[in-house]
């Protein structure tokens, strides 16, 4: 795509802004900021990736993946305001998932051990894991608040913290898996996923693009499950005081 063609895409932004003005949505400032940020972030990433792909230095790959995980963790942790120490728990969950996923993909030679494969696939799975963590924490908060009676009943019967929230954790993990499972069921019928579409536009064989998309969907399902289950194991004790009482989840 030429730079001129890329510039023309700003027309879509202009249309959105005009609609916002017409409908008095008061979104023009946010749209402008979003447009500038998206352009700068993506162009910067493009240059960084170009540099990393050319250097082929393992250290750069690891560094980029670490940055992705930390940013994803900070973003997902916003869903758990009031819960202390949640960022490092998310980091640990996503990092474990990433090591497992990438370990399997590389050791089984499903993908080539080059930055061109490792970085985009890592970005997509980490992004998916971030969404799963956010959904898990949001639902955990809701479930803990709405199931306070159930949790305290179990505590009063001598349950451990794990026993007292086992069902709450199960329901929260299930909830954050729903979008990925639904996407898996309807892919190709309702939506043509971004990666596949991108590959086809870039001139790749559609069958080859579909193969990679299948890989991504399966990896997404597994990454959601691993991350949310690991996060549930790491987080549940944080719901209780040292006296085995249910904490108030303050904002």
């Amino acid at each position: 795509m030429s730079l001129l063609a890329l510039t023309f895409t700003l027309l879509f932004v202009v249309i959105t802004m005009l609609l916002s003005v017409w409908q008095k949505l008061d979104l023009e400032k946010d749209i402008a900021i979003g447009t500038v940020r998206a352009a700068i972030q993506l162009l910067a990433v493009g240059y960084v990736l170009q540099f990393v792909f050319q250097s082929k230095n393992l250290l750069f790959i690891v560094l980029i993946i670490c940055i992705m995980i930390v940013v994803a963790a900070h973003n997902a942790a916003k869903r758990a305001k009031g819960m202390s120490g949640v960022v490092w728990r998310i980091i640990l969950s996503i990092a474990t998932m990433e090591i497992l996923m990438m370990g399997l993909l590389l050791s089984l030679q499903i993908i080539e051990a080059t930055p061109q494969y490792i970085i985009p696939l890592s970005g997509m799975t980490i992004g998916n894991a971030m969404v799963a963590c956010g959904l898990f924490l949001t639902q955990l908060k809701r479930e803990t608040e709405s199931s306070k009676g159930e949790i305290e009943t179990l505590l009063a019967l001598g349950a451990t913290s794990r026993q007292a929230v086992q069902d709450v954790l199960k329901r929260s993990v299930k909830f954050c898996m729903i979008p990925t499972i639904d996407a898996m069921k309807t892919v190709g019928l309702v939506q043509l996923p971004g990666m596949m579409t991108g590959m086809i536009i870039a001139g790749a064989d559609p069958v080859e693009a579909v193969r990679y998309q299948i890989l991504i969907i399966f990896v997404f399902t597994s990454s959601s499950a691993i991350t949310s289950m690991m996060l549930s194991v790491l987080c549940y004790k944080n719901l209780f005081t040292k006296d085995l009482q249910l904490k108030k989840w303050s904002e």
Binding site: G149, E150, E152, T153, L154, L155, A156, L157, G158, A159, T160, D167, D243, L244
Partner: peptide
């Protein structure tokens, strides 16, 4: 704390049934 709660047991004003059947509730302990 768990041993204490097994010795001194609280029954709430609003009875909370755990998910499942009556039998599952009775088998909780």
């Amino acid at each position: 704390t768990r041993v204490w709660r097994m010795k001194i047991t609280y029954v709430a004003q609003q009875a909370v049934m755990l998910p499942g059947t009556i039998e599952e509730n009775l088998k909780t302990v």
